[in-house]
């Protein structure tokens, strides 16, 4: 069995060692956590408002730029860890605020039933926001890539099997960059916090209730309009946070959100529109598939170029074969 499989192994076999695959897996999972975070935001918006936000990637982009600007301003005047936390909070705050204002101005009329063909309106108006934000940031920040410095360090220690320096973590033979590791950990924390919020707090339950039955939510005294605003703001905030943790890993341009948003579309469709576990699992799957796909693609030159294609192909297939995704409740 193994021998037959080995026949199909590509030429640069020497690269593919168990450590290499493990590293790919670990990196895929770390990035996958961030994808999950973004997709969770989109899921929240979809389940409460019933729309897909085509401006999700732009909130991600804004989140990254806010961190970048914050670090530029404060990195010399504040302690390092504090700057990092402040930058993340600022990114969350700004994206939440933009989300709330946009929802109030443009999506509330739709929720009140004042717009014809709400589906088309939702697509176009969120798309319009994306257009506006992209060019706004292009005007403000210019077209040249920006990259923020890593804003948290790893604690330096050496525990035999696991060794850490400021910039990397070594487990056995696998080395992980601190940037990705910290981004993944923050995303994990945010995911846990979000799950706690959704399932254990009154407001979270009210959001769930609104997504499951708007009329019943109004009957028990929940204001569905406020829930719409909150859901959109939170969704935007999660995307903003995802961008905020990644700005020190990738370089940032105003259209960085396009790929990011298409990835979150992939994930929510794969996981099933409106399903929270679906978006979490979907994010991890896409992260790992991309990472393994890129690492093991026969032609390394093309591999990088095709990295984003893997997810999109899965996406197209899921849409065509099983539009309800893995955990889909209903279309």
């Amino acid at each position: 069995m193994v021998a037959t499989l080995l026949h199909f192994v590509p030429a640069q076999m020497w690269l593919i060692t168990p450590e290499f695959i493990l590293r790919l897996l670990a990196e895929g999972l770390l990035i996958g956590l961030i994808y999950s975070l973004m997709a969770l935001g989109l899921t929240l918006i979809f389940s409460v408002l019933g729309i897909v936000s085509f401006s999700h990637g732009e909130f991600y982009m804004i989140g990254g730029y806010v961190v970048y600007l914050f670090l530029q301003k404060f990195q010399n005047s504040l302690p390092r860890a504090l700057t990092g936390i402040g930058a993340l909070l600022a990114a969350m705050l700004v994206t939440f605020a933009i989300g709330v204002v946009f929802e109030r101005l443009f999506l509330q009329p739709m929720a009140r039933g004042e717009v014809d063909r709400p589906n088309e309106y939702a697509i176009l108006t969120t798309f319009g926001l994306a257009f506006f934000l992209q060019y706004l940031m292009l005007g403000l920040m210019g077209p040249f890539p920006k990259k923020a410095r890593r804003f948290f360090d790893l604690p330096v220690f050496d525990a035999g099997l696991i060794q850490a320096t400021k910039a990397s973590l070594k487990i056995g033979n696998i080395t992980l960059g601190a940037g990705r590791l910290i981004a993944g950990l923050i995303a994990l924390l945010a995911l846990l916090a979000m799950l706690y919020f959704m399932f254990k707090t009154w407001t979270g339950r009210a959001l769930q209730a609104t997504s499951q039955d708007r009329q019943a939510a109004a009957v028990v005294g929940i204001n569905p309009m406020n829930m719409n605003t909150l859901a959109f703001g939170l969704g935007a905030m999660l995307a903003g946070l995802a961008g905020a943790v990644l700005v020190s890993v990738y370089s940032w341009v105003p259209w960085v959100g396009v790929i990011a948003s298409s990835k979150s579309f992939v994930i929510i469709v794969l996981g099933g529109m409106g399903s929270i576990p679906g978006s979490l699992l979907g994010g991890l799957i896409i992260g790992v598939v991309e990472s393994l796909g890129t690492g093991l693609f026969p032609d390394p030159v093309r591999a990088q170029a095709y990295r984003d294609v893997f997810g999109l192909v899965i996406f197209a297939l899921v849409l065509l074969v099983k539009p309800t995704g893995l955990f889909g409740r209903k279309l």
């Binding site: 729309i51 897909v52 085509f54 589906n119 088309e120 939702a122 697509i123 790929i259 298409s262 579309f265 992939v266 469709v269 093309r302 170029a305 095709y306 984003d308 294609v309 999109l312 192909v313 996406f315 197209a316 849409l319 065509l320 539009p323 279309l331």
Partner: peptide
Amino acid sequence: LRSTYLALFTIAFAEILRLVFKA
């Protein structure tokens, strides 16, 4: 596919095509 799903699918198609042409 209805409105939103169609939009999502065509975005995916367009991006795949672009990335393939690029690669």
